[in-house]
């Protein structure tokens, strides 16, 4: 990444687009602080990559929910257990976990198969479970790295609707995708384009005419 200056505001919905290798996933990892910039700064709700210690990284990660193209759910566990695991390891009281996990799954439109193993679920269903898990900490922003890459058209459409619903409740959504047709179906969203690690266009800047 080089010379990229980017700000995602609270409650914003933005697409991050570009060819393979343009830097979409790297941007996501930098915001999640899974990677640290060699120069420059990442700031998430006041937590700066320049100052935060390894010990305090969990604070950033609870502000940033993340989903992936390959879901990254725990195999051999049910949908409910996957969400419950995220709640448990982030300190939710044990007694409150089942109800909260069921509520999160219901929020993402996944209710009937909570006891099904993730291996028994379709791609769209797995992605809903992954989104429910990402929402466990009520983050300020949801990062979605090519979340529809493995889904058919109908599932893709349903997941996008779900992201808009989540965004309508005040959570910022930043979704990485190389699918320009999909982006075209959502004209109200901000579109940020990267190419070879550089920011080449930002619809917000084009609209306002300022940096």
């Amino acid at each position: 990444m080089r010379d990229v200056s980017l700000r995602v505001n609270k409650g914003e919905f933005a697409f991050l687009t570009g060819h393979s290798g343009s830097g979409k996933s790297t941007t996501m990892r930098l915001i999640h602080m899974s990677d640290r910039p060699s120069s420059g700064e990442i700031n998430v709700d006041g937590y700066s990559s320049d100052h935060i210690t390894q010990r305090d990284l969990w604070k950033v990660r609870r502000l940033v929910g993340m989903v992936f193209q390959d879901f990254r759910l725990l195999p051999g566990r049910t949908a409910l257990e996957n969400v419950a695991f995220a709640l448990e390891v982030t300190g939710t009281p044990r007694k409150a976990i089942p109800a909260r996990a069921n509520l999160l799954l219901a929020q993402v439109g996944f209710a009937p198969k909570t006891d099904a193993l993730v291996e028994q679920l379709s791609g769209g269903e797995r992605q809903r479970v992954a989104i429910a898990r990402a929402l466990a900490n009520e983050p300020d922003i949801l990062l979605a790295d090519e979340p529809t890459g493995n889904l058919d058209d109908q599932a893709t459409s349903e997941i996008l609707d779900l992201f808009w619903d989540i965004n309508a409740n005040g959570m910022a959504v930043l979704m990485a995708t190389h699918d320009l047709e999909l982006i075209g179906r959502h004209p109200n969203a901000r579109v940020i384009e990267l190419d070879q690690g550089r920011l080449v266009s930002d619809s917000n800047i084009m609209r306002s005419g300022t940096h």
Partner: peptide, 13 residues
């Protein structure tokens, strides 16, 4: 995989 998910969702070290 569990460790990865723990770090992903913000479990303390």
């Amino acid at each position: 995989e569990e460790i990865y998910v723990m770090r992903l969702v913000g479990a303390r070290n």
